Amino acid sequence: MESTIRTPDTSSVIVGVDGSEPARRAALWAAGEAVRRGRPLRIVHGADTDGRALYLSAEKVEEVRAAGRALLDETAKAVAAEHPGLLVTTEFSRADAVTSLYRAGGLHGTLVVGNRGLGGFDSLMLGSVGLETAAAARTPVIVVRGVDEAGGRGTVLAAVRDEHDLVCARYAAREAELGKASLRLLHVWNILQSVGSVAPMLDDVDAIADEHASVLEAVTERVHAEFPELAVESDAEKSLSVAGVLVEASRRADLLVMGGRRAPTALGLGRSLGRVPHRVLHHAHCPVLLLPRAGADSGSGS
């Protein structure tokens, strides 16, 4: 898994648009990310005309295609107005939105989506396309949310669960360098999950806390060694809600980078997000960059 993840400065940036305002904001945010990386931006619209061919007349199919191409042109013009030097390409796809993004991203592209689309989801919730894209992608996915809140916080936040999240910490460190920001590594451990019950917690909590702190310290030392000029802060917190702590911490970050722990669905078909990434993607106060998580336990649902 690690071999499929390129550092931000060498990854192409692909954003999906569907005509919604969140998708437009995602496109503008993705353009800024492409500028930071020194990479071109590809804007993709998946019209799903192939999937709906049996239900649409030839005239309607042509109408949908014309509307999709017009949307791509309008979005490209909006991006060019804010980033005149950025190389922008557009892609109209007859496939559905998720398939179109996967194909455009290839093996190493970073996919960017808005927090909701045209389906009428509440603004606090992640839309179905964003959720499906984040759940099954094998390359980094950024869900753009919280951009209307106070920006310019100057911090990239990385969620560190264990040593397998060194990839995540490195990626976040590079994002911080590109954005001339500082890096905060945050390790959150659930008290009851760690001890199993309240009774042994009273005797063992200090030892458990030390064990969790050592995990964070090891990752922090590696990041310091590889990024000696970067300002790095690290914190370990205990809580009954890992996701709750990360969501609150996202209020003070420009970007939250975390590993996605994907698990089989209840029926054993496909993959889905674990509980913590799922909640964070729904409620974070800043854009969330989700990386495929390495390690033997990457199929866990937590």
Rank of each mutant, 00 (worst) to 15 (best):
H282M: 04
A231F: 02
E177N: 02
G68Q: 13
S123M: 07
S20K: 07
S128E: 10
R252D: 11
L269N: 06
T99W: 10
A231G: 07
T99A: 14
T75Q: 12
G151E: 13
V88R: 08
V280P: 05
F92I: 02
L101Q: 10
P40D: 05
H108K: 14
R6L: 11
L240M: 15
A243T: 04
A236Y: 06
L71E: 12
G38L: 01
R161F: 02
G244K: 07
A213Q: 11
A284H: 05
V198L: 15
L87Q: 15
R275F: 10
A176E: 03
L183P: 01
S93F: 01
A243P: 00
L131I: 06
A284I: 10
T90W: 02
A243Q: 12
R170V: 07
H285F: 15
T155G: 00
L86M: 10
S3L: 08
T89M: 15
L71M: 11
A78E: 12
R222T: 08
V141F: 02
L126K: 14
E82F: 03
A266R: 10
M258C: 06
G259D: 04
R94Y: 10
L166A: 14
V245P: 01
V35R: 13
V288A: 09
E62D: 14
R251H: 14
Y55R: 10
G105L: 09
S194M: 15
K77T: 07
L71Y: 08
A26C: 02
A81D: 09
L267Y: 04
L101C: 13
L269Q: 13
T7F: 05
R65Y: 03
A58E: 09
E149V: 03
S234Q: 01
L178G: 04
G130E: 14
A104C: 07
Y102C: 01
R24K: 04
K238P: 12
M1L: 03
H108D: 15
E62C: 02
G152C: 04
D297S: 12
L240G: 13
L157Y: 02
H108A: 14
G196R: 08
E211F: 07
A137M: 03
A23W: 07
V112Y: 14
V98Y: 06
E2I: 05
D206S: 09
V232W: 01
A225G: 04
R275D: 08
A213R: 15
S272L: 02
M201N: 04
R25L: 13
A23M: 09
G114L: 13
T75W: 07
R36D: 05
V143F: 02
S300D: 15
E91W: 09
L56G: 03
V160Y: 11
I191Q: 15
M258W: 04
E233H: 10
S250K: 12
L267N: 09
V195F: 15
V15N: 07
F121S: 12
I191L: 15
L157C: 08
G152P: 05
A173S: 10
I5F: 12
R116M: 05
K77Y: 13
V215P: 01
A53W: 03
G32W: 11
P84E: 01
A172T: 01
P292M: 13
V223C: 05
R36P: 05
R184P: 00
S239P: 10
G114F: 12
G259F: 11
L289C: 11
R252N: 11
T89Q: 15
